[in-house]
Amino acid sequence: MEVALSVFVGIFFAVAIYLMLSKHIIRILLGVSIFGNAVNLTIFTVGRVVREVPPIIPEALQTPDTITANPLPQALILTAIVISFSFFAFLLVLAFRTYQELGTDDTDGMRVAEPEGEPLPPLGY
C-alpha cells in the first residue's frame, strides 16, 4: 500500500508543481491546493498505513486491543487541512484583489514591489 501511495503522492506533487510553475495566478492557486493534499498524504504515508481500523479505543477497554491506524499523523494532518484551507482562501482573495487592482492575472505583469528598470540606489551618504 505504501508503494502505491508513494507513486500516487509523486504524481500529485508533479502535477501541483507543474501548475505552480505557470504564470497564471489561478493555475498557481489550483497547484497550491493540490500541493497541500500531497503534503498531507506524505505525512500520512510516513506514519505507515493500516487499513480500516480508526484509532478509537473500544468502550470497554482502557487501551486499544488491536493494531489501529497511527493517530499521530492524523492529528497533525487534521489541523493542517484546516490551516491550509484558510491560507488557500487568503491566497484566493489576495489574487482576486490583485487582479482588481492591477488588471492582470499574469505574474509577469505584477511588478509593483519589484518594478522593472529600477534605478541604481543613491551612492551618496
Binding site: P54, I56, L78, T79, I81, V82
Partner: peptide, 8 residues
C-alpha cells in the same frame, strides 16, 4: 472526544 468528530 470518544468517537470521530471534534471542534475542527
Amino acid at each position: 472526544h470518544n468517537d470521530p468528530g471534534g471542534g475542527f
